[in-house]
Amino acid sequence: MALIEVQNLRKEFKRVIPKTGFLSGVRNLWNSNYHTHVAVDDISFQVEEGELLGYIGPNGAGKSTSIKMLTGILVPTAGSVKIAGLTPWKNRREHTQNIGVVFGQKTQLWWDIPVIESFRVLKTIYKIPDDQYLRNLNQFRDLLEIDQFENTPVRQLSLGQRMRADLAASLLHDPKILFLDEPTIGVDVLAKERLRTFIKEINRTRGVTVLLTTHDMQDIEKLCNRMAIIDDGNILYDGSIDDLKSKFGNERTLVIELDDAPYRLNLPGTRVLREEGPRVWLAFNRDQLSASDIMMRVAEHHTIRDLTVEEPEIESIVREIYEGGMSGQKKEEEHVPVLDLQ
């Protein structure tokens, strides 16, 4: 049995449509105009122990709502979740012993007191035995250099330090699963790298299963062995990053710089993405055309000054999936005309 099993998870919110006009504040008290908003439509997935799953999607896609259901904060409208054999919202308190949660947007530490004092409170709340607490604390002092700022109030920490402290706090009770909601948001490049290294490390050494949401594709590429893309409350893609690249990433971009004046290149099998001065960006499917074919065609009429082939970045693939749903495939069919090189 998988560690996390999510089946047909659904969450609807009823939003009151506010009344306006005379005494609207009073009349809104018994407002009965509801509008049902489906935040999570129908989501199923499984996570095995030790996996590092990236959960991505645009704002409002349903990421946070799913995380809130998995952590036991919200009760779903329909569907089931089993995490380490427990239903989060039914066995909330037992479940929370199994999980660590970090919300990047908001610290879980006490804002005005030294970091170490927050840890002490968490030690009591989670009933962490002394030896376990000390062992973890020492490890985090090593790995995250918590000791540099453990006596500083959280409000005086830099964002990177705060995230390190938050990560350490979420792991003090040795959770099996770590939920990270945008753990690298707003953090500078170096600090990001450090957080990633740490997350990877604890996943490897402690076997902690990690589920993280992010907007930073680098997080996904550097950390996760699997990613789920969610939009409009549904999972659009669930699989490895390499698979995603080979499935959707067979499009290449050829950047050609021509010697002569801008000229509209109309080559069958390619799509002009952009033109800028003498430079043209041409998209093509590498399964149907090769870069050298295009080069030859162009060279017949123009002098090529410079040229590069760009691999798709994961980011652009994901953007394409957000925009076109899974119909990304359809787009391919559209721009596969007969190749006619005469």
Binding site: T71, G72, I73, T96, I99, V101, F103, K106, Q108, I125
Partner: peptide, 8 residues
């Protein structure tokens, strides 16, 4: 929400 993610 944070309170709800803790076992007390």
């Amino acid at each position: 929400d944070q309170i709800l993610t803790r076992p007390a």
